[in-house]
Design a protein around this nucleic acid. Structure first.
Length: 422
RNA sequence: GGGGAGGUCGCAUAGUGGCCUAGUGCGGCGGUUUGCUAAACCGCUGUAGGAGCAAUCCUACCGAGGGUUCGAAUCCCUCCCUCCCCGCCA
């Protein structure tokens, strides 16, 4: 959510930002009109409420029955008028909030302009793609042959785009999760969180998934709860409606959770393998920081995610996303690992700064100094990393001619010392 | 799931229709006193919105939302949450 004061005082700046993202700038005018009317009504009703408070106090002291009755009936009229105005104000406020919650974040000035994902900028490529002296297989062939991924039984249980991991496949994923959590908690200063995997609607509003991006969510029937699409949602909302001390910041959390995304995509797209599925596991990093530090923190967040790629020794590239691909962030970097079997770059991490956009929605505040007024803090998050695609990258990069897979060195202590899967 | 007790200012508590501009204690901040610390005493102490250059003032907030009333922390309704007992259960 944007600051209404910013919209009031610099509407042109907001319109320009919306235009850069390809969003409708006229939203600003609807919000401003409603804001003005709302404030005029508040002014009017507050005068009446002040009057009623004073006269009600007088009534309690009046002994003269006639005078008393006259004031009571006068206040009855005032009370009716107040009720009318309050009704109008709450209707205006509901609409005002609806429009404000719909409004996206504004891109940072340093974000490249663009209209599609093709306008994203490759910042750098790290690592040399392995030269194969045989034709590398896609992970679904390797996984089925090794008996570590079972697609058919996944479909039998839950339908298409669900899968079952077995044996060394399960073990590899569990090793990755544990290793990544250890890396971020022991080397990068994050503290671990295990949140609920279902959340209330207001929590999804807090991160910005609702109302605008609700079409991909799995809702629990009959429970007013939704399965989380990412750990970002519960973890970012951890301190909602709280006022933190400046000395508490920065707070870095890391959480492993399953994630559910009911992606509405064309039936033929990415159906093979585990690249695009309805349920997957992910380790997520979330930062709560003071406003002046958030862009420096974004860079270290990216570096923390890159460390995972480097330690696994898998080639990857860093992308700076353009204005069309920002979601609700002001600035976003993606990490993509090279997968030689499917011959594509796989998005394994997305690192975003939201500035105060989520803080305002979730009411996440801190006190800059003792006694000072509370201010909204800045939130960031980044995958560190998303499991199925890292699994793909490991399987396809570390495969051998006989279809076995070498276990990356850093994972071996987490795999009971195993050096090869197969 | 059944029965009972509750949710009030950072914490603890008082408050059953107007004396509540929510009292008191603790904590916190400032001051007086003081060789230092402590004690004692005095003052201050939330959030949001609005008016004003400012001092300051107004409005709302006693779990949430409705209702009754000239007036609600207090009465009524619905919901949420916490604690205790019983049942069930990983």
């Amino acid at each position: 959510m944007l600051d209404i004061k910013l919209i009031r005082e610099q509407p042109d700046l907001v319109r320009a930002g919306l235009r850069r993202r390809g969003d409708n700038p006229a939203q600003v005018d609807a919000i401003l009109a409603l804001d003005e009317r709302r404030r005029a009504l508040i002014k009017e009703v507050e005068v009446l409420k002040a009057e009623r408070n004073v006269v009600s106090k007088e009534i309690s002291k009046l002994r003269d029955a006639i005078e008393r009755e006259a004031k009571i009936s006068a206040m009855r009229v005032v009370g009716d008028r107040i009720a009318d105005l309050d009704r109008q104000i709450s209707a205006d406020e509901a609409e005002f909030n609806r429009l404000l919650l719909w409004l996206p974040n504004l891109p940072h000035a340093d974000v490249p302009d663009g209209s599609t994902e093709h306008d994203n900028v490759v910042v750098r490529v790290e690592g040399e793609p392995r030269q194969f002296d045989f034709s590398p297989k896609p992970h679904w062939e390797l996984g089925e042959a090794l008996g570590i991924i079972d697609f058919e039984r996944g479909v039998k249980l839950s339908g298409s785009r669900f899968f079952v991991l077995k044996g060394a496949g399960s073990r590899l994923q569990r090793a990755l999760i544990t290793w990544m959590l250890d890396l971020h908690t022991q080397q990068h200063g994050y503290s671990e969180i295990t949140p609920p995997y279902v959340v209330k609607e207001e929590v999804l509003v807090g991160t910005g998934n609702l109302p605008r991006f609700g079409e991909n969510l799995f809702r629990i029937e009959g429970a007013d709860l939704t399965l989380i699409p990412t750990a970002e949602v519960p973890v970012t909302n951890l301190y909602r409606d709280e006022i933190l001390e400046a000395s508490d910041l920065p707070i870095f959390h890391v959480a492993y959770t399953p994630c559910w995304r009911n992606e509405q995509m064309s039936a033929g797209r990415d159906v093979r393998g585990i690249k695009r599925v309805y349920q997957f596991d992910k380790v997520e990093m979330v930062k709560f920081v003071t406003p002046e530090t958030s862009y420096a923190e974004l860079l270290t967040l990216v570096a923390n995610a890159e460390d995972v790629c480097k330690a696994l020794k898998i080639p990857y590239r860093l992308l700076k996303l353009c204005t069309a691909d920002l979601g609700t962030a002001t600035m976003k970097y993606d990490l993509e690992m090279w997968a030689p079997g499917v011959e594509e770059w796989l998005e394994v991490s997305s690192c975003s700064n939201f500035e105060a956009y989520q803080s305002r929605r979730a009411n996440l505040r801190y006190r800059p100094s003792p006694g000072a007024k509370p201010e909204f803090l800045h939130t960031l998050n980044g995958s560190g990393l998303a499991l199925p695609r890292v699994m793909i990258a490991i399987m396809e990069n570390y495969q051998q001619p006989d279809g076995t897979i070498v276990v990356p060195e850093v994972l071996r202590p987490y795999m009971g010392g195993a050096e090869v899967i197969g």
